[in-house]
Write a protein that binds this DNA or RNA. Structure first.
Lengths: 196, 196
DNA sequence: CCACCAAAATGAGTAGCCTCATTTTTGAGC
DNA sequence: GCTCAAAAATGAGGCTACTCATTTTGGTGG
């Protein structure tokens, strides 16, 4: 008998899941989403090709699984930074800035937004990511004092963030520093909310 | 000899292009983007499977090719409606509303946004669609009086529009009427711009 | 310790987008 | 009208995400 309540089966699954996450994270980091095949991931994780899809419903879900933790961390960091701010405008900027900073690794950030918004609607890791976005919006609305208008402004802030994260991929506005641009757009939105 | 300057070759290509566009439009309308195979499109257009890809680089490009005209028409309609408005806030809303109205056919609108933002960066019809978005933003910025802040607000308005078009797909905020929501968010953004 | 069942893993197979070596068509020069 | 080069079309085949019938494994009751 084991000190843990988990049997061998559950432990094996956790371990396997761990291997899969690590393999996927490494390969996506090395060569990007489209540069990696699910075969390669399953090989590096030392599981059969079909086994991957028992842990994540699609390649996109695999990607979300790997990157959700980063988003969670960024939101936490933002929350911590925002707590130190008095001014709502600065607080909101502090909340979203860490998420934007991730876009240094911009390829991944754009792919993440794509999979998050467009993946098959029912899947686990997508739902998890969308919940994180919901949490971020709730925090923003809260710092704006709550209410329908605040929730609306928060939604706009996410819309801005989303587009700026995707931007590098489109290659349309190559010059601007996205973090600075985020600040300016968010400032506008917050002013619009307060001018109600 | 022909009264037209075009030779047989150019005419054949135009005609073929026409058949392809029609076939793709019909099938996408009937069964949606993922419900249609490129095989089916090529069969209905009566061309070989490979020939499709001489007219559009990918299935996504095919979709953009078909739907760019709709966006162009919506932008034109918005421009006409906006011309009749005095108030900048109302004018901006008039500019974007027709684009949102398309989202009655919401499945397509979301797919269009996806392909537009995430398709391979160098392709023809994607560039065409992005140019249309650029034009829409320019018109918005113009109605706000021009300048960097106006351009920024215009960009935010597109971000809002984009997210609302994608919304039905994510299934996250199912209740709200997106057109009304668009009006409210845009109103906030415009107020934020004017409060500068 | 064995028999049995449910959960998990497997990997060969399928579907569908797209490529590319080959064939066909077009038009120009003679 | 004939020849030839360039452009266009073709469709068999490659590649890769994903499925599913079969096999393996782990746990449980006797």
């Amino acid at each position: 008998m084991d000190t843990e309540a988990t049997g061998r089966r559950a432990r094996n699954m956790l371990e396997k899941r761990e291997r899969i996450v690590r393999a996927a994270a490494e390969l996506f980091a090395e060569r990007g989403f489209e540069g990696v095949t699910t075969q390669e991931i399953s090989e590096r994780a030392d599981v059969a090709a079909g086994t991957l899809f028992r842990y994540a419903a699609s390649k996109g879900e695999l990607f979300l699984m790997v990157h959700n933790e980063e988003l969670r961390a960024a939101i936490q960091a933002g929350a911590a930074a925002a707590a130190a701010e008095q001014d709502p405008e600065k607080a909101v900027i502090a909340l979203v800035e860490p998420v934007m900073q991730r876009a240094r690794d911009s390829r991944s950030a754009a792919v993440y937004q794509r999979e998050l918004l467009f993946g098959p609607p029912t899947e686990r890791y997508r739902a998890e990511g969308l919940a994180l976005v919901g949490e971020l919006e709730r925090r923003i609305a809260e710092r704006l004092g709550g209410g329908a208008d605040a929730a609306r402004a928060a939604r706009t802030v996410f819309a801005v963030l989303n587009l700026l994260l995707v931007q590098p991929w489109t290659g349309v506005h190559p010059g601007a520093d996205p973090v600075e641009e985020l600040r300016l757009q968010v400032a506008q939105v917050v002013r619009g909310f307060r001018a109600r």
